[in-house]
């Protein structure tokens, strides 16, 4: 039994806020849901908020990179926001650089980043 992470829509940006300890199946579901929603909603940007996430292992790290790559292909830009210092240090030690994933310190800065790169209508 895997839960689904809710995907919210604000304007042309999809917002995912991860609040639970994700099992691998939930991670894969999220990846699928997002790809579908980007197309369905015509989204230009995706913000994944991981402020509440205590652990990002290689599986979740790969999911973030994959979502970024998929959304780019679907003409949307992904920003991962709110990564904790301990998580960042651990990812570096693990050897994951999340190449191709844009990041911002918090949700506000993440939305601003999308706006700046012309990915959101409120320019």
């Amino acid at each position: 039994m895997s839960e689904r992470v809710p995907v919210l829509r604000i304007g042309d940006v999809l917002l995912v806020s991860i609040q639970v300890d994700l099992d691998d199946q939930t991670v894969l579901n999220l990846q699928e849901d997002l790809a579908q929603q980007i197309v369905d909603q015509g989204a230009r940007g995706v913000v994944i908020d991981i402020t509440a996430v205590e652990i990002v292992d290689s599986f979740v790290g790969r999911m973030l990179a994959t979502i970024a790559a998929i959304s780019r292909m679907l003409d949307a830009e992904t920003v991962v926001v709110g990564m904790r210092p301990a998580v960042a240090i651990t990812l570096v030690e693990l050897g994951l650089s999340l190449g191709g994933v844009r990041t911002a310190l918090n949700l506000e800065k993440g939305l601003a980043l999308l706006r700046r790169s012309g990915r959101s209508e409120r320019t």
Partner: peptide, 17 residues
């Protein structure tokens, strides 16, 4: 420490998988 906790839990997650 918080960083060491995160490192240990992440390692456990990798190995469990």
């Amino acid at each position: 420490s918080l960083v060491d906790q995160t490192k240990f839990i992440t390692a456990a997650s990798e190995l469990a998988r």
